[in-house]
Design a protein around this nucleic acid. Sequence first.
RNA 1: UCCUCGGUAGCUCAAUGGUAGAGCGACCGGCUGUUAACCGGUUGGUUGUUGGUUCGAGUCCAGCCCGAGGAGCCA
Length: 457
Amino acid sequence: MSSLSRGCAVAWRVCCHLPLDGQGGTRMSSVLIRDVANFVGQEVTIRGWLYNKTDKGRLQFLMVRDGSGLIQAVAFNKALPAEAFQAAQVVTQESSLIVTGTVQQEPRAPGGYELALSNVEIVQLAQDYPITPKEHGIDFLMDNRHLWLRSRVQWAVLRVRAAVVRAIRDYLDNQGFLLVDCPILTPSACEGTTTLFETEYFGEKAYLTQSGQLYNEATIMAFGRTYCFGPAFRAEKSKTRRHLIEFWMVEPEMAYAGLEECLRVEEELLSYVVMRVLESCKEELQILERDTTKLEQIVPPFPRISYNDVLQLLKEAGEELAWGEDFGAPHEVAIAARYDKPVFVHRYPAKCKAFYMAADPENPELSLSADLLAPEGYGEIIGGGERIASLELLEARIAEHQLPREAYEWYLDLRRYGSVPHSGFGLGIERTVTYLCGIHHIRETIAFPRTLGRMYP
RNA sequence: UCCUCGGUAGCUCAAUGGUAGAGCGACCGGCUGUUAACCGGUUGGUUGUUGGUUCGAGUCCAGCCCGAGGAGCCA
């Protein structure tokens, strides 16, 4: 970046704001903490909240955050008007405040810069902020999720999430996929098996979507390559650190694409996302203490292993599984542990997978499906494969699964009018973010998680 | 749905069936380089809930409620 464009970027962020008293007479300019390195030696104003404070008597250390970062501000009693120093003395954790001071390089300060204060103005004095800088249990933190979001680790995780979403959309947009979002209220089960949230649609039953998959199959016949990006709802009573009741999923779908092409897009997409996060979230990953050397290895191609070979592998590992059984969490961990990269497990038995999965021409008992298992035991982050293109086969599968044929007439139309081989997959945003952040539980990767038995706040 | 663990001060946790405590927070005081500061003091309780056993229950028993971890299912 040239010094000129750098200067412009900084100037762009120096903006004017009216004071909160609404009187509008005086105007203040302020800078973001993330930009303070560009203002060494200059006096700046920062508008934010008090993250923590160390009271040393005539010396006050104020840790100030503004949403863009964290900086230590130091108040010496002789350097400030008496009123301002008193404000620094009485200000409490998470009070909102506006501070003015000179930016200095200071090795003793976290982050390397600090603000030598000349003024402190309290906007609102917070009383008894519940989340102290000590240990807290998860129940308490979840009850206070609306406040917990202010803490550093949560700040980092949600910023990584935003970077992941941005990277996914950039990749797909640049690869010729068109964003076509799918409905959230649906007339019936997309896959017919898992439990759905039921609601009411002017006297008719309606369900919250669990996947946009079937609608994507319609939109690719109009646009070639599409993806939908939105929430999905599963009313299953899943109670593990890998499950949310409401989660976000990106589902790309491609016309004229077989399983192999699908896998290539999956590995390229995930590698691109990892690369972008490594590039744009250095500070966040550092806060999360993520071992980035493991993420740097995530480049195509990813290893591929068939279901049948996995069974053999599990047998050798003493975890024998009958053919046709799906893997449990311990199996997934055992499989992923053998690789440094995410691994594709492909060609599951047809009966393990959804009714629309294409059959393997070499063995009709198998489906042209693949799941992507993340390393380090983070589990399945992508599920996908090739869909059935034949009308007759799809009709047979719908009957086998005892699905209501009328509800699928439009879906069958896609096979009557210009059917083509096509493939697609769904990537779980929160599981991907959990893995990239290296954190323990999926509930921290969404601002307000919906988990089994918890809908507050 | 099943299995396991838990519920005591605002928070994190102690407490042989025998007077319910500590640290942190908050409040008051002290300190010009703190990094979850430190030092002194003050404050703080319907022990999840209902019933039972007992001279006596935070502690033992039963039911219920809530939470956590895991399984199954899935992304």
